[in-house]
Design a protein around this nucleic acid. Structure first.
Length: 650
RNA sequence: GCGCCCUUAGCUCAGUCUGGAUAGAGCGGCUGACUACGGAUCAGCAGGUCGGGGGUUCGAAUCCUCCAGGGCGCACCA
């Protein structure tokens, strides 16, 4: 892991408070790692300036930012900068010579820098006195659950839209991956100082809705012994039969008063004759609404379709909740339409000259914005394609005040963002407000054997069935171990069977182990620091004590007993958390956190077997209890963002 | 044909955006460690032409280019 840092300020986030940090009213909090990096950068800058002054070197050499990174090899120091290599050409010196010159003028007095060396092609490596890491404990124990929060998001309002499955059936395993990633990304962004909302877009209108209603109609008639064929495109899933049965039981009057099914010839008359040449086998799907009819028939479809949608939606909502996912809003296409938004958007697009008529349809000139072909907004039969309400929904998000729209889409929808961005840009918005993350598929396997999932054939493993077999913790962790753009195999047996070697248990075990130590300490009457509620020692200069943390004055703990390399390793890992969270948030990559969590757990386990906490000399126990408590806070923090529980016992 | 994603250890995958020093982890395999806080742990070994070729660079898994293999799309469906 290589951390880059050029001095960007991170502040602990306060998701609940609005805008105070944005206005710069609260003093910026500098985490321990940032404080020490500030020291190093300042020392380097001063040294470069001194070299320039002494050697008549070009001033431009002082302009290059001093980027610091953590060398892969521990032997190469705690931090390293390539600034000499970057600016060697400017000053006209060989990188190594230039580096040597800089180093000769670095003043380490009053800093944690122990020694500085030039290495390799011209790296300047910094070796720190490990005591700089004591500051991490101040950070963690003062900030508690907010340790790791930053302000890289600057309070921007972001809405993360994910899953948004059609309300035409139960959720599947791919939806579960989307749910895990979307929910975790939202949490991650919140930790990074964004103001986050989670939304689920419900396509409860338009063609998909109609197909569901038609399937309902067919199943109802079957139940009544009336001959009825499943129209082309209608959903074959057996769950529709259940829904039809429910409807019949709850609304017998409506069923007995059902309108006759319009026959195709009568229904689509005008459209069919117009498109007769190409409609081929006569599905009619290409030329007009399937089984279009009069108002009574349409009202009937609306009623049974609505019934089905609400049941399915409720089922989806429960499944997601079981998975630990709650939305701030279930945005409905039907409401977008009812509010007249698509029409307004259409008008604005037309006024701006981005639409045109062709073949009886209204087109959006998306090719002007990078699409490979223009897209239909209003079909020949007057119906909207999905594109128009979708653009309207995104406009609605912007009008509700969001600065950033993040959508998670299946890879089978890739290219969709081009249409959406084109629509937004055509309306005068910056298309960059929309970020689309495509997730690859999930191949579910059981004992190495592929489990087929096909919605079309009505045979698939539902998310509910999946969760019957795999715990939410394991499922979410596994999904989040992979980056979004990799097709993943999910072996159900592995997630379950391997309880001993399962990474999620490994991480959770570290947390439970710590809890055990703290429990035992309490039983022995040893004072246990309460993270986030107690101020230990003094907060670093310039620190704003978080409003949520009450200042309880415990006697300051002497940290000097912390001297074992394993202890410093653990502190170093803890010190990384703010950077990890900020970087993962900016990259929109929650999966980085599973790797961090594993590393942290591993570092703790190594510490644990080498350093005993309880039963040591009192000052050692006190110091290590702080360290252990801080580790617990950090583990819980990361697991919380991942949506995985942090158990006290296992 | 065009577009997007992928190709890294036996398997599953990090690392690629933002180029750095000897390419990592888990699983699986092998060898060790329990008289104290939870052994769901720890220590160690074996395992690699980073799909292939060319290029840029002091330096390439990472950037450019060509090729091969796999996945997904290319609607007046969503």
């Amino acid at each position: 892991m290589q951390h880059r840092d050029d001095g960007t300020h991170h502040n602990p986030g306060t998701q609940d408070e609005r805008g105070t940090q944005r206005d710069g009213q609260a003093a910026p909090y500098r985490y321990a790692a940032e404080r020490v990096r500030d020291q190093i950068r300042a020392a380097v800058r001063d040294a470069v300036a001194a070299c320039i002054a002494a050697g008549g070197l070009p001033e431009a050499a002082a302009q290059a930012p001093v980027t610091l990174e953590v060398p892969r090899e521990r032997a190469h120091g705690d931090y390293s900068t390539n600034v000499a290599m970057v600016t060697a050409r400017t000053v006209g010196l060989k990188p190594r010579d230039w580096a040597e010159r800089i180093v000769s003028r670095i003043d380490t007095a009053g800093t944690f820098i122990d020694r500085v060396e030039v290495a390799g092609p011209g790296f300047i490596n910094f070796y720190l006195r490990p005591q700089w890491l004591y500051g991490v404990l101040d950070d963690v124990l003062a900030l508690g659950p907010r340790y790791g929060d930053t302000h890289v998001g600057q309070g921007r309002r972001v809405v993360v839209e994910f899953v948004s499955a059609n309300p035409t059936g139960p959720l599947n395993v791919v939806n579960a991956r989307h749910a895990a990633l979307g929910d975790s990304l939202a949490s991650l962004l919140a930790a990074a100082g964004y103001r986050v909302a989670r939304e689920f877009y419900v396509n409860d209108a338009g063609n998909q809705f109609r197909m569901l209603a038609l399937a309902m109609d067919t199943r109802l008639r079957e139940l009544l012994g009336e001959p009825a064929e499943l129209p082309e495109g209608a959903y074959p899933g057996e769950y529709v039969i259940d829904l039809a049965r429910q409807f019949a039981a709850q609304h017998p009057d409506a069923v007995s008063a059902r309108p006759p099914r319009p026959d195709r010839g009568r229904a689509g008359g005008a459209a069919e004759s117009g498109g007769a040449g190409e409609s081929g086998a006569g599905e009619g799907a290409g030329s007009g609404p399937v089984l279009a009819g009069d108002e009574t028939w349409e009202a009937w479809l609306e009623r049974i379709g609505r019934f089905a949608v609400e049941r399915i939606l409720e089922d989806q909502r429960k499944t997601l909740e079981r998975f630990g996912v709650r939305y701030d809003r279930w945005a409905r296409e039907s409401e977008i339409r009812a509010a007249g938004l698509p029409g307004q958007v259409l008008q604005r697009l037309a006024e701006r000259g981005h639409t045109y008529q062709r073949d009886g349809a209204v087109w959006l000139r998306t090719t002007a914005f990078g699409d490979d072909k223009d897209r239909v907004l209003v079909k020949r039969d007057g119906q909207f394609t999905y594109v128009l309400p979708d653009i309207a929904y995104h406009v609605d998000k912007l009008q509700r005040g969001f600065d950033l729209l993040i959508n998670l889409l299946g890879q089978d929808h890739h290219g969709h963002h081009v249409r959406l961005k084109a629509g937004l840009e055509a309306l005068g918005y910056d298309p960059d407000v929309l970020e689309v993350i495509y997730l690859q598929m999930v191949h579910l396997t059981r004992g190495g054997e592929a489990v087929r999932m096909s919605k079309r054939r009505g045979e698939f493993v539902s998310m509910g069935e999946f969760l019957d077999e795999v715990s939410t913790d394991a499922a979410r962790y596994f999904f989040l171990m992979r980056s979004a753009d990799t097709t993943m195999d999910f072996d159900v047996d592995l997630a379950n069977l391997q309880t001993q070697e399962n990474p999620v248990y490994y991480v959770q075990y570290a947390h439970a182990r710590i809890s055990g130590i703290l429990r035992q300490a309490a039983e022995q009457g040893v004072e246990v620091p309460a993270a986030g509620a107690a101020g230990h020692g003094d907060l670093p200069a310039g620190a704003a004590r978080p409003s949520g943390a009450e200042a309880v004055d415990l006697p300051p703990v002497d940290l000097s007993p912390i001297a074992d390399p394993r202890e410093f390793d653990l502190l170093r890992k803890l010190a990384d958390l703010p950077d990890e969270l900020a970087a993962a948030a900016e990259a929109r990559e929650p999966h980085r956190l599973t790797h961090y969590a594993y590393d942290l757990a591993s570092t703790f386990h190594q510490f644990y077997v080498h350093c005993r906490v309880l039963g040591e000399a009192p000052e050692v126990t006190r110091a290590r209890l702080l360290l252990v408590r801080a580790t617990q806070v950090a583990l819980a923090k990361v697991l919380g963002i991942l949506g995985v529980s942090a158990p006290e016992r296992m």
